[in-house]
Computed example of a mutant assay.
Amino acid sequence: MAIPAISVYTMPVEADLPNNKVMWKPDPKRAVLLIHDMQEYFLDAYHAAESPRVELISNIQSIRKACKGLSIPVIYTAQPGGQTIEQRGLLQDFWGAGIPDGPHKKKIVDELAPDEDDIFLTKWRYSAFKKTNLLEILHKQERDQLIICGVYAHIGCLLTACEAFMDGIQPFFIADAVADFSQEHHKQAVQYASDRCAVTLTTNLLLKDLQNLNDASSIEGDSRFTLQRVREQVAELLRESPSAIGEDEDLLNRGMDSVRIMNLVEKWRQVGVEVTFADLAERPTISEWFNLLSSQTEKVLSNTDNMIKE
Rank of each mutant, 00 (worst) to 15 (best):
F94I: 06
W95T: 01
W95R: 03
G96H: 07
A97E: 11
I99F: 07
I99H: 06
P100K: 14
P103K: 13
H104G: 00
H104F: 08
H104N: 07
K105M: 10
V109M: 03
L112A: 05
D117H: 14
D118V: 14
I119H: 10
L121G: 08
K130P: 00
K130E: 15
T132H: 07
L138D: 13
K140R: 10
E142V: 10
D144A: 07
L146N: 08
L146Y: 10
I147S: 09
I147T: 08
I147L: 15
I148Y: 07
Y152A: 12
H154K: 15
I155V: 14
I155Q: 13
I155H: 13
L158G: 06
L159C: 11
T160P: 02
C162S: 13
C162P: 00
A164D: 03
G168N: 05
I169K: 02
A175W: 03
A179M: 04
F181R: 11
Q183K: 08
E184V: 14
H185R: 07
Q188R: 15
Q191H: 11
Q191F: 04
D195G: 04
R196G: 00
A198R: 01
A198C: 01
L201N: 05
T202E: 00
L205D: 07
L206K: 06
L210T: 06
Q211M: 13
L213C: 15
N214D: 10
S218E: 12
S218D: 09
I219N: 00
E220N: 10
D222Q: 07
S223K: 11
S223I: 01
R224C: 04
F225E: 02
L227I: 12
